[in-house]
Design a protein around this nucleic acid. Structure first.
Length: 463
RNA sequence: GGCGGCGUAGCCAAGUGGCUAAGGCGGAGGUCUGCAAAACCUCUAUGCAGCGGUUCGAAUCCGCUCGCCGCCUCCA
């Protein structure tokens, strides 16, 4: 079975064939570090985290590059408002970004370049474009001339004439064409700047990704990703400037994730604050967040809802209970029994079909149900064997989606709780149900739930 | 105005020409149980916005209608 990926460039699903067999080089547009990350950033980060993990799960050697845009109008605006340097703002939010990503289990990139560390590469790239006659200099600004790159508009499906008519195009008399975009902006007072052949200034937004992607992945690489809002103009411009400079295809597969919508509700300041990643993980298990997000295909829009997240948390409990039960058995897992092999096949078939995580999760839930069946009869050695091996397999598959990393070592109960549990066990032996229920309440107050099973009391942290 | 997407059970969401329309949440009944909980078993869309059409056969293709949404140089 081959992996198929939807390519924004062709608007079709295509068989995934990396440039170098067994290796995948991918670049994902990261964040502009001027504020805290919200649920939308989380979706994009998780989607590409899952794609990256699944490619690795499938045996590819993946090189994953994710950049930071740390020079930008919004950063400068914020810095001026706070009376601090742009660098201080960007460094602060890089640190906050790492904190949030760690909280939701998103792996770090193999390389996480910052724009300001690559000004030299950008200048060289712009020089190439000027030399090639596709960019021109005006008063210390450098613009890319759209008319020189016939494929401009292909990625986003834009008709160039209609773009011209767009009311939102800012008319700048110095540009040869309103649609031309800035590669380099002449310095303004009080803004960060670097010296260049065209005078002091700073890079335009798009050039950084071209320069950094090429620096770490070469002129041509496999996958370029980002939010669907980046298709135009950002990725369109990246293609133009990169391919005009190198004469080579920039990226083969363009992958874009859909948005998190808030319905009719306007993203007000207060609502926006509650949708910050750090606020969401206070209320929900990070795996619940991931489970909820992966319940919708990555290219479809998803409506934010606190209730959906809570539901995902309940669904997650099914896996957690299974893992806790299986963890009581310390015998090493054997091979996965034949009867349980189909789940991995279903999982992979779903993921191979353009990363169909909702369908892949369906396979995981069915897998869990099958394993619960073995749990019921775990006294029998063959059922026990199937359970232990199956749970290991289920965790591996979940791991390909970035799930279950933390639930594997759930914290043990404190000694006080253990003492109450055994005391309750004594009471139950005496058939002293009143005392037994008192002790359950006491345990409950300490933050734990106790349930009686044929195998003894089962303790779980209270939610 | 241009380009694109969506409308599947009470809610969320896969499925895009042909086996019983995945899965989750919620709900109903049952088994088990001191109680409770969990688990397990069974049930919960003769129908996929509506109307036409193509086809031996359509949720899936085509047309029209209705409703919702995204992008069109801030944006994950």
């Amino acid at each position: 079975m081959s992996l198929r990926v939807h390519n924004t460039l062709t608007r079709k699903e295509e068989e995934f064939i990396p440039l170098v067999p067994g290796e995948v080089r991918m670049y994902v547009c990261g964040v502009t570090v001027y504020d805290l990350c919200h649920i939308g950033h989380a979706r994009s980060a998780i989607v590409f985290d899952v794609i990256r993990r699944y490619l690795a799960f499938r045996g590819y050697r993946v090189t994953f590059v994710k950049n930071f845009t740390d020079v930008d109008d919004k950063i400068i605006t914020r810095a001026q408002a706070e009376g601090v340097s742009a660098r201080e703002v960007s460094e602060r939010y890089v640190a906050e970004f790492y904190r949030d990503m760690e909280a939701i289990g998103v792996l770090r990139g193999d390389v996480e370049p910052k724009a300001t560390d690559h000004i030299g590469q950008m200048i060289r790239l712009i020089e190439q474009l000027v030399a090639a006659g596709v960019a021109y200099v005006v008063d210390g600004d450098v613009y890319f001339e759209i008319a020189r790159f016939p494929a401009y508009g292909r990625l986003s499906g834009k008709n160039l004439d209609e773009l011209l008519a767009g009311a939102r195009v800012e008319v700048d008399e110095r540009k040869r064409d309103p649609r031309d975009f800035a590669l380099w902006k002449a310095a303004k007072p009080g803004e960060p700047s670097w010296s260049s052949p065209w005078g002091d200034g700073r890079p335009g937004w798009h050039i950084e990704c071209s320069a950094m992607a090429m620096e770490y992945l070469g002129p041509t690489f496999d996958v370029h990703g980002g939010g669907e809002d980046l298709i135009f103009p950002h990725h369109e411009c990246e293609i133009a400037q990169s391919e005009a400079a190198t004469g080579k295809t920039f990226a083969h597969y363009w992958v874009h994730n859909g948005f998190v919508n808030l319905g009719a509700e306007k993203m007000s300041k207060s609502l926006g604050n509650t949708l910050l990643i750090r606020e969401l993980v206070k209320r929900h298990d990070p795996d619940a967040l991931r489970l909820w997000l992966l319940g919708t295909h990555y290219r479809h829009p998803v409506e934010f809802s606190e209730e959906r997240l809570t539901e995902a948390g309940r669904a997650l409990e099914r896996f957690h209970r299974l893992f806790r039960e299986a963890a009581r058995d310390t015998r090493p897992p054997g091979p996965v029994p034949e009867a349980l092999r189909s789940f991995r096949a279903r999982f992979e078939a779903a993921m191979d079909d353009d990363f169909n995580t909702p369908q892949a999760l369906g396979a995981l839930f069915d897998f869990a149900r099958a394993l619960y069946g073995h749990l019921e009869r775990a006294e029998a050695p063959d059922h026990q064997q199937a359970l232990v091996a199956g749970v290991e397999e289920l965790k591996r598959l979940g791991g390909a989606l970035g799930l279950f990393a933390r639930s594997l070592n759930a914290p043990g109960a404190p000694a006080e709780v253990d003492r109450l549990v055994s005391e309750r066990g004594e009471a139950r032996k005496r058939r002293d149900w009143r005392r037994s229920d008192e002790l359950r309440d006491a345990i409950h107050k300490l933050g734990w739930s106790v349930e009686d099973t044929p195998g003894g009391p089962r303790l779980t942290p209270r939610r």
